[in-house]
Simulated assay, not measured.
Amino acid sequence: TNKVSQLISIPANPAIDLKLQGLHLIEASAGTGKTWTLATLMVRLIVEGGFFTRQIIATTFTRAAAAELKARIRKSFENYRGVLKQAMDAPEATLQQAVAQKDWLAVHLLQTLNIDQQGHAQNLLQRALDTFDELFVGTLDSFCQKLTSEFAFDSGQYETLHISEKDAELSYQVLHQS
């Protein structure tokens, strides 16, 4: 099977333990690892779930957080593609390095994927990088804007709708219209 011979116990980790079906909400205080968790889940969705980038949606509240998340996802795709490539030549050394770095996703992948699956996973991550622009990572309002633009005709709207950023002004107009 060409799996690593040593089985390492992975500490409980929601990003690794979470099932890849259904809707999930990741909510936590600042600095608790939400971005890492989402980037880890994206790797798992590609490698274990077999999803295409165009099938995945990740939303957050600010444009800055969305930009950071997207950059971290890309970096994770690149990193784990490299880990899997390295493991093709030196599986035990790669596993030991992952354990030393407490990179539990790498440990998980190296222990659950045989050599053929690791090669396939590398290809899936490369495809994800090649189609990275199809991955939607943005704010909730930008996701709504995307939906109103892409499905305007289906919704009966014949002109493009836009989400306004003038909340206070529009609220005032609605409240004070006679």
Rank of each mutant, 00 (worst) to 15 (best):
H108L: 08
A106T: 15
E92G: 00
L7K: 13
Q21K: 14
Q21R: 14
N2W: 00
A39V: 05
T139F: 02
L124S: 07
K166R: 14
Q21I: 15
E165S: 11
K75I: 03
A152K: 13
H120R: 14
R81P: 14
L113T: 02
I57P: 14
L129C: 06
R127I: 10
W36Y: 12
A106N: 11
Q96S: 13
A66N: 08
R72H: 06
L170N: 04
R81M: 15
R81D: 13
I16H: 06
A98I: 10
A71H: 07
L38E: 04
L170S: 00
I115R: 09
T131M: 09
F77T: 04
K19I: 11
A58H: 01
G82W: 07
L45I: 06
S171W: 01
L124T: 06
V174M: 13
G138H: 00
G82P: 14
G50Y: 00
T131C: 08
V4I: 06
Q101G: 06
S149M: 03
L23V: 15
Q122W: 03
T1E: 10
L69C: 08
K75L: 08
E78A: 09
V99K: 01
E68R: 10
A100E: 09
R44C: 13
A30W: 00
L41K: 03
L175K: 02
G49C: 10
S9T: 10
Q6T: 09
D17F: 03
L125F: 00
A121L: 04
F136Q: 06
F52T: 11
N13G: 09
S142Q: 10
L20A: 01
L84W: 01
E165H: 12
N79Q: 15
H176K: 09
K70A: 07
E165V: 12
R127W: 09
A87D: 01
R72Q: 03
V107Y: 03
Q157M: 15
K102W: 07
A67I: 05
A93W: 03
N2H: 11
R54L: 11
F143S: 08
T60R: 05
A121W: 00
M88L: 08
T53E: 09
D130C: 02
F136H: 11
L84C: 08
A93N: 06
L84I: 07
Y80E: 04
E68L: 11
T148P: 00
A15V: 09
H162K: 15
A12Q: 09
A64K: 15
K34G: 04
L135K: 01
G82Y: 01
Q145T: 05
H162L: 14
L109R: 02
D89T: 03
R63F: 01
I56L: 15
N13E: 12
Q157A: 15
L135Y: 01
E169G: 05
E134A: 11
Q101R: 10
A66S: 13
K146I: 06
V174C: 05
A39S: 12
N114S: 05
E27H: 02
Q86A: 11
D167L: 10
L95G: 02
T148G: 07
S142R: 09
L7D: 14
E169V: 15
E159K: 02
G50T: 03
P91F: 00
Q173P: 14
A168D: 12
E48G: 02
N123Q: 13
D133Q: 08
A106Q: 11
G31N: 01
L125M: 05
A128G: 07
E134H: 07
A98Q: 05
K19S: 12
